[in-house]
């Protein structure tokens, strides 16, 4: 499903002294099946933007098209259907858990979809396993008895169970330990590779962004500044730093190395790729 954002503006508390323009004329077409990272410093409008993508907040002007359909120009029933197509996982999603058991909580979305009982059951099982939890062990446990990381995964499963074609995650790894972070992002990538769904990941970790994203959308003061591949976006090191952002640590290393070894490729963002490239260039030199 393609998402096309056209001339999107959003002004909070218009007409009061707290008036604040969060989005300024955003024009982006998010391709189908891409893993898109959304980066920008705090208050740059990321959260406001993603809430427009499934119609949770209405734009002041401009609109969003989902497969050509203007999502703000449709009936209430269709808007609710849009929300099943565009799944949004909020920051700290564990704060929205409410049911008596994990399985019931995950089933909330599919139930609202009015699916048949057996399909709800199948989806709940699939979603809980998708986030790396043991369905048999956890399904009858109260979500409030779980650890923070497990609660987070159950909450994400609650959105996955709707099988959204576009999955948006607002900092899904905030406050998790490194293991929990890799676990969640790994599962999301696995799902993305298997289902070819569009993923939009809001993240402050340039390492994660460099590792997982096909495209990066950079927001700054409510504007979409760059929308390109990680290679292209991370070439703007100085501009990104001025926006309070950074590039992956590996990129800094490779850039520094490039000054010494001009033939080195510095468009690399993961430790593994960097190791191979350094071995290729320096290893060869070593043998000479």
């Amino acid at each position: 499903m393609s998402l096309k954002i056209e001339h999107l503006d959003h002004i909070y508390a218009a007409g009061s002294p707290f008036e604040f323009q969060a989005l300024k004329d955003i024009n982006v077409e998010l391709e189908d099946g891409c893993f898109i990272a959304l980066i920008g410093h705090t208050g740059s409008g990321k959260s406001t933007l993603i809430q427009h993508l499934n119609g949770l907040i209405e734009p002041t002007s401009g609109t969003v098209y989902l497969d050509g359909q203007d999502i703000f120009d449709q009936s209430k029933e269709d808007l609710i259907k849009t929300r099943f197509s565009v799944g949004l996982v909020f920051q700290y999603p564990e704060h929205q858990l409410f049911e008596e058991t994990v399985a019931k909580d995950v089933a909330y979305g599919p139930k609202n979809l009015k699916l048949p009982e057996d399909e709800i059951h199948e989806r709940v099982k699939w979603a809980i396993e998708m986030v790396g939890l043991d369905y048999g062990k956890i399904k009858d446990v109260s979500p409030f008895e779980l650890s923070g990381g497990q609660m987070r995964r159950v909450a994400i499963a609650g959105v996955l169970a709707m099988r959204p074609k576009v999955l948006i995650l607002d900092e899904p790894t905030a406050g998790l330990d490194p293991h929990g972070r890799d676990m969640i992002l790994g599962q999301i990538q696995k799902l993305h590779k298997a289902a070819h769904n569009t993923v939009i990941l809001v993240s402050h970790s340039m390492e994660d962004v460099g590792r997982y994203a096909d495209r990066i959308l950079v927001m700054y003061h409510g504007k979409a500044v760059y929308y390109d591949t990680p290679t292209q976006v991370f070439r703007h090191v100085d501009e990104l730093e001025k926006m309070g952002l950074a590039v992956p640590q590996v990129k800094y290393l490779m850039r520094a190395l490039k000054k010494q070894y001009p033939e080195i490729n510095d468009d690399l963002f993961t430790v593994e790729d960097a190791r191979d490239e350094i071995e290729r260039v320096l290893g060869r030199e070593h043998h000479v």
Binding site: Q51, N54, L56, I57, I80, R83, F84, G87, L88, V89, F90, P93, H95, Q96, Y108, G109, N112, L113, G158, V159, M162
Partner: peptide, 11 residues
Amino acid sequence: KIIKAQKARGA
């Protein structure tokens, strides 16, 4: 926020 999160799950 909670209302929005549940709306995102089709509430």
